[in-house]
Design a protein around this nucleic acid. Structure first.
Lengths: 118, 118
DNA sequence: ATCGCTTATCGTCGCTATACGATAGCACAG
DNA sequence: CTGTGCTATCGTATAGCGACGATAAGCGAT
């Protein structure tokens, strides 16, 4: 693509990347599974999800590239675990972004809160 | 797609949809612009972004379908505004999802917090 | 060294997303 | 009624995502 995505502020780009990593139910389910079981073994995740092993591996790759998950190849079975710190940063980033958008002026000028607009 | 996405719990699917709506810098920038200016006019957004009018309109459509933005066609100029309530719900949903993933057992069994895993 | 189990990667397919120009629709000014 | 300006939609092209089977790669057990 001509990917206009690079034309935006880097903080928006980073937040968008994080959101993209979370934009698939399978990846959310993977995060939940990893967090629920201390177990970080890939096979367990595959058993838990209605997806093929290759697909799960790809989702894990996405999550790892997004920095939400850390993985260590411990021989036959790979070890995955949620990166709590990164996840917290993502949560903060969302709050920082969404927060300022919420404080619409209580009953002021150009707020279109009710039903009438502008 | 063969869209395995339907095979997951609906709450995950909804959160994933919200994340998908936020997964593009242009849409984040649009939300910021709509919130910053009380102005909800589409043309202003087009001026602010390095995108064509048609593209902005499509992004607005996505945001509207995701329920993050409300739009009323007030004749020549369409009126868009951030749906604060929906945005708050999304923020809460993210917190509800990410929160439980953060409280890794302080210093317990199978946590792979440090650098060693499983 | 070989087998078996687990995981990562490759190649492919179809669908979706992104982006744009061009076109159609709509309200107001004249 | 006829412009004029703004927006939505259509059509299209390219790029990327999601999914899978098949294959390769790694380590432990035999």
């Amino acid at each position: 693509m001509q990917s206009k995505a690079d034309l935006f502020p880097s903080d928006l780009a980073r937040l968008a990347d994080a959101a993209r990593a979370l934009s698939h139910p399978a990846r959310l389910a993977i995060l939940q599974t990893l967090a629920a079981r201390g177990t970080c073994v890939c096979g367990d995740v595959v058993d838990e999800l209605p997806l093929a092993q290759a697909t799960v591996s790809q989702h894990l790759k996405v999550l790892k590239q997004a920095g939400l998950v850390r993985g260590e190849v411990d021989g036959p079975r790979s070890c995955y675990c949620v990166d709590s710190e990164a996840l917290r940063e993502v949560a903060d980033a969302f709050v920082d972004f969404l927060g300022p958008l919420l404080d619409s002026p209580p009953a002021s000028s150009s707020d279109c809160g009710a039903g009438e607009c502008c």
